[in-house]
Every structure is written in C-alpha cells, then in structure tokens.
Design a protein around this nucleic acid. Structure first.
Lengths: 207, 207, 207, 207
DNA sequence: CATGAATGAGAATTCATTCAT
DNA sequence: AATGAATGAATTCTCATTCAT
C-alpha cells in the first residue's frame, strides 16, 4: 500500500502519473526538444522502455503532460479559491487576488507559463485549451465579481471584461517576476507584492 | 583591432548579420535545443560550416544572438520613445504607453519574451542583462515620469517604483496576448487594447 | 518421460500447437527477424511469457516451427498422394501431378518455400532436412514412377533422376506463381495450369 | 581518380552506389528486418550517418536497392543475351538457355530471388516491377523464339506462352538449386545441368 | 502453468561539428 | 573565407526476455 516496494510491479495504475510527473519536471525545465527521455525515465524511476508502454512517443508524452498539467492546475485553482461566498465585491476580489497569488506562484503554473510561451506555438490545440480553460476561465471569475461590484455601486462603471484583463495581466506578470526573484532585486516580499497589486488595482476601480 | 579584442571572434559589425538574424528566427520559434543549425544556415543563405567561422558553437551563437537582440531591441525602444519632451506627466505617459505598445508588439521583443521564459533560465547572465537593460530600464523611464507627476500633483501619491511595475506588467502581458490573438478572441484591435490600458492605468493614478 | 527426453522441453504433442501455428503465420509472412513475438502471442491468444514456457527463445521457436511445418507437410503430402496403385506409369504420374499440385499450393508449403529461400541459409540443418525430406523424397517418388515407365516402354529412355528434377522444377515454380497470381495476370486457372504442365511434361517423356 | 583516397571525400558521386552495393549484400543475406544499418555502413566504408544523406530511412534504402538491383540485373541480362541473331529457333533457344543460365546463377539474381520470395510481399509495387520486367520480359523473349520455331515447323504446335513458362520454371528452379548445391548432392556440374535442361526441353518441343 | 508489466540491450535516426576542397 | 559532404556521439525507439504475481 505504501510507496516502498521492489522495483518491478509497484502500484500499477500509478505508472502513468509517475511518468507524467517526471516529464513535467524535465520538459518544464528544458522544453520539448531539450528534455531527454532518459532523464525522464530516471526521474520516474522507471526503465526507458516503460515510457513507451504508456505513450507512443516523446511528443505524445509532452502533449499529455501539458494537458494533465493544465487539468490539475485547474483543480488546484479550485482549491485556492474555495469559499469566495457572499460578501462585498471588494472582499471577494481581495480573496480572489490572494487565492490566485498562491495559485500562480505554484511550480505547476510557473512551468506551464514557460512552456506556453515557447513550445505551445507548435501545439495550437493545447494553446487553445490553456487559453480557454486557464486564462479565459480565470478572467470570467474576475469579471463576474466586478460586474456585481459595478451593479452594486461598489466599483466605478468599468467594462468588467476589460477590468478582468487588467487584473490577470498584473497578477500573471508579477507571478513570473517573483518566481525569478534573483533577477529582480527591487521586488519586495511576495506578501508585499500582493498588497501592492491589490491596493493599486482596487484604487483603479473606486468610483 | 587584433583577433581577440573582445570575447567574440570578430568585431560584431563585420560578422554576418544574416546569421544572427536567421538564428533569431529559428531560436525564437523553437528554442535553443529545438532549432537546427541546418535550418539557420538555410535561412541565412549560408553553408552550415560558415556559421562556425563566426561562432564557436551552437550555444555561443544562441548567446550572441540573444545579446544582439536585446541590444537592438533597446535601440528600437529608443526610436519608439523619441521626443517625450516637456509636457504634462499624463501626456508623457500616454506617449510612452503608445511607444511601448509599438515596441513590445515587435517580433523582436515577442521572440525575446518567449526565450526569456523558457531558455534563459540556463543563462543567468543573459537573463540578468535582459532584466536590467530591458525591464528595469523601461521601468525607470516610467517611474521617472510618475515621480514627476506625483510631485506636480498630477497623480495621486503612489510609490513610483510600484506604479511603474504595474504599468509594465499590464503592457507586457497584453502584448503577448495580442501577439497570439488567434487564441484570445475577445481582444479588441491593438489600438482598442492600448486605449483600454491607458484609460485604466491613468484612472488608477488620478488623485 | 522425464523433462529431457528430447531436445525440446516437452513432448511435442502437449505443446500448444496454437503457438507453432501462430509462429508459422507470422514467420511465414515476415521472416525470422521481421516477426514479432508480441504478434505471435496475440495470434496464438496466449500471453507473451507463455511462449517462453515452451520454447527457450525466438530462434528455437522458429526452428521448431520450421521442423514441425516440414513434418506436417509430409503428412499432408502423404494424404494428397494416397492410392497411386497399380496402373500405367502415365496414369500414376497424372495422379501424382495432381496430388502435388494440391499439396504445393497449400499455404503450408508456400510459406515454407518463402522461408527456405531467405532464412534457411542460416539454418543448414533445417535446409538439409527440407532438401532431403521434402524435395529429394518427392523426387524419388517421381523418379520411381518414371523408371517403371521407361522399363515398361511407356516412356522414352530418360534418366529418371533428371526427369524427376524437371518435373519438380516445373511444379514448384508454377505453384509459387499461382500463389502470387495478382502479379502474373497471364496465368490461367489453377486447373488450366495443371493441364498445361501435365500435357507438356508427358509429351517430353513420350518415346 | 583511382579508388585509393583518404577517408573523407572519395569519388563523391559514387557514394550512393557504394551504399546500395553494401545494402544489396546485407539485405540479400538477412532480409529487410535482419540486416543492420551498422553493418551496411561498415561494408560501404561509410559512417552510419552518411547513409541518411542519401536515403531517408532503412525501408527506402531497401526499396531503392531492390529497384536498382532489378535494373542492373536487366542490364546484365542484356549482356548475357547479346547476339541471338538469325539462326534456327533451336539454336537461338540453346543460346538463350545458355545466356540465362549464366544470368540466373549470378549473385545478383540469386539474391533477388531470395528477397522476392519473402520480403517483396510487403512491397507490391516492387514485386510487380520484378514480375513485369524480369520474369514476364524474359518469358516474352522465349515465347517469341518459340512462336517463330512453331511457324517454321521446327517445333511442334505448342502455345508459345505456355512453353515459355515451362522454360522459365525449369531454368529458375534449377538455378536456385545449383546455388545451394551443398544441399542437393545429386546435382551434376552446372554445365551438366544446363545440358540436361536443354535436352529435356528441346525434346518436348520436337514435332 | 499463465500472465503481462517491466526491463535494457540494441537498432534506427538525428544533428552539432569537422575538414578536405 | 566559404562550402557541404562526412562523421559519430547522443538520442529516440523497439522488442526479446524476465519475473513478481
């Protein structure tokens, strides 16, 4: 039941996940072409051939890994965002901003961002999937809250769509900068940055 | 003057720009590992061996290409930003926002962004160079204008550093989205998007 | 009775004929190197590991399959040739020609021919076995009949050995052509071809 | 000009031929699946990668090799058959029988026969090419001579098509047997066998 | 006995790098 | 300087064989 067994025949249905996990790390670090199947196998503690039991080739492994990563990112997002319930729009936005901040700084999402930037040009369907499910979906959440806030007079009259785009642009950029903190010395702590963003953004919505 | 006056083998201006250009396209599209010297040579209309007359190996070519691209991006930026002269801070910001919008949507910068995301993790010096010269420098420009605006009472009391970060986060994210317009159907025209950003951002600075 | 009474691991009749059968099909189609154990297992409706319960390795399976195929071909031949009894030599030859025609066009024999051509170079003992048991034996049958025919004055004075070789050369070649009929459009029906061969051959023996 | 140069850059246009030649030997011996590119390269005195400069993959190399072999076999046939001119049909047939006997026992043709038997099932176009160009064409030559012989009353009234088939069946089978002489001890010398065939065959055509 | 997931050696293929011309 | 054919090390992929269940 636990994780310590002999080499052959471990939890059998765990194999694909194990490999996808290793693939996530290697591809996320070095990209599709740069990652070596050998390293993925090593990291997954699996023989090279085993990978081919579950995925027909490197590209397919890459695709499935990206897909799985997106899906599991959505699940994580769900978790980060649990309980936004019935309060003022501002409070909701603060909660959302906080939840997203946690979510976006996740290794999962950071790696995705990197892959999306460079490799997903060659996989339009995955790019679309990411754009729809991660970006657009997140944005819908925000624009919903903002629309309510505008309705209730909490916020000034903005186009919720546009405002939501502003929100996600700020959050996403900052998350990648904070992930590479060593190159951006002027950045404060992650909490500080979150405060900066919230303060700035909410000000822009005040009537 | 001698053969070894700089780390590079020859004065950069003598070195076939075609090669760097071709390298820029191929690397920018497929990354360091994914690009093939063969394709670079073909695109540069040069024999494969010729590349080795100017660059000791693939990685060096990549590095120099990134370096050159950053440098020439800065030059382009300069051009996009010419004549910000003595007006109100808001007018300056509008001009800057416009200039940057042109600059960021440039193929040059878009490719850089892609490479920065995935490949530059392996080249900290280049990453730092990019962070300092492109991002931080741009931000300094913005923060300078904002500081003046705050001083002059045009803008509310914000930390110019922070506000500048907000500015660049919004501009950079939107530029990559617009570059991949096919995946983000809800985006308006580039001009529309620029207006949205300016309107939103300036509102957030109003006293 | 014990585990090692013959070179093979178990008495042949107990060993799953399905495996040999499947092996026959796959090897016969793609040769020793080209056939995949995986496909053989699938065709035999047996797990891959099961094959190794009965045969130490791929090559041994191939050898035993060829051996078994030759043996069972001989049995089939016996059947095709039953009852050549006491008639004129010509009648006997006609009967034999007919029986062989049936026998040679058998999938069993056709596959054997294919394997003999390419793969049996590496297995001299099998080749010899085939040459002796199938070819030479068949020829002996023919030469016996011819010798009798010559003795009885039915046929002209030919060397029965040589005439028998002519007989088998004609029959064997035509059988492989008919088996690949799609490439030899000028061929008549199998019956027609048999008639052609008999007529031609018997004419050549007439005094 | 001669064949002794340094490893790199030998007669450049000879490369493909060199490789095809090596491929012919390896494939002819072990078949498509059994041959190793490594061995082909070694035999061609070329690096493994060089093969891929001229052929996209193993299968393509195989196909081109078979095609080239068939073509060059036809040329050899031409040579073996030069000068069949204006004599009696019987004399022509004797000459042809002799020429073919030389041609068929050629390593080139023997290897082809082996490949045709087993591997060409997967390459119907090559099989057809072989059937048309080698077999049918040879047969046409024979049937032409026979038709003339029948017309002139030299031969009995046979269907030239059928008689030609008989001719080639006898010649082809005997050539493969003689090529594997070690397994067919009763065979006389090649010359003896040719005499046997001619004598037998011509008898069958006598009026 | 039977299974089939797992293995890893070996074969095919790619591509950065070299070098004779 | 420039070329591009040739190289071979590195990588992907295949498949005979093993072994825990």
């Amino acid at each position: 039941m636990t994780l310590l067994d002999t080499p052959r025949r471990r939890a059998p249905e765990a194999r694909p996940t194990q490999i996808l996990d290793a693939a996530f790390h290697e591809f996320g670090e070095r990209g599709l072409a740069g990652a070596r199947l050998d390293d993925i196998a090593k990291r997954a503690q699996v023989a090279k051939g085993t990978i081919y039991l579950y995925f027909p080739n490197k590209e397919a492994l890459f695709r499935e890994m990206v897909h799985a990563t997106i899906v599991s990112a959505l699940v994580e997002e769900e978790a980060s965002l649990a309980g936004l319930a019935s309060e003022t729009a501002e409070a909701q936005l603060r909660r959302l901003g906080q939840g997203w901040w946690t979510f976006l700084r996740t290794e999962r999402v950071q790696a995705l961002q990197r892959l999306v930037a460079l490799e997903l040009g060659q996989f339009p369907d995955l790019m679309q999937f990411y754009a729809d499910e991660v970006i657009a979906r997140g944005r819908r959440l925000v624009s919903g809250i903002i629309a309510r806030g505008v309705e209730r007079g909490e916020f000034r009259e903005v186009d919720p769509q546009i405002a939501a785009r502003m929100f996600s642009s700020i959050w996403m950029s900052h998350s990648t900068w904070c992930a590479r903190r060593e190159f951006f010395k002027t950045l404060g702590s992650d909490e500080q940055v979150l405060d900066d963003m919230l303060e700035f953004y909410l000000y822009a919505l005040r009537p």
